[in-house]
Amino acid sequence: MLTTRLTTSEEKKLTEYCLQHGLSKSQVVKEALAQYLTKNSDVSAYESGQDLFGSASSNDTDRSTTYKERLKKMLNEKHSH
Rank of each mutant, 00 (worst) to 15 (best):
H21K: 11
L33F: 02
H81Y: 14
D62C: 08
A56L: 13
V29D: 02
G49V: 14
T61F: 11
R63T: 10
L19A: 14
K12A: 14
A45T: 09
Q27R: 15
S26Y: 04
T3A: 13
L37I: 05
R5H: 13
L23N: 01
N59I: 05
T15Y: 11
E69F: 04
L6Q: 04
K30Y: 08
S48Q: 08
L71K: 14
E47I: 06
K78C: 03
K68I: 12
T3P: 07
R70W: 10
A34V: 05
N40C: 07
L14W: 08
G49D: 02
A45C: 10
M74K: 15
G22D: 07
A34D: 04
V43G: 01
T15E: 13
M74Y: 15
E47P: 02
F53N: 11
E77Q: 09
H79G: 10
L75A: 06
S26V: 13
G22C: 06
N59V: 07
T7N: 00
S9Q: 10
G54N: 06
F53R: 13
L75G: 03
E11F: 15
Q20F: 00
K13C: 15
S24K: 14
E47W: 04
L23E: 01
E16N: 13
R5W: 02
E16G: 10
K13I: 12
L23F: 08
T61S: 06
T4M: 14
K30I: 06
E69T: 15
E16A: 14
K72Y: 01
E77R: 07
Y36L: 03
K72F: 03
E10N: 07
C18Y: 05
L14N: 04
L33D: 00
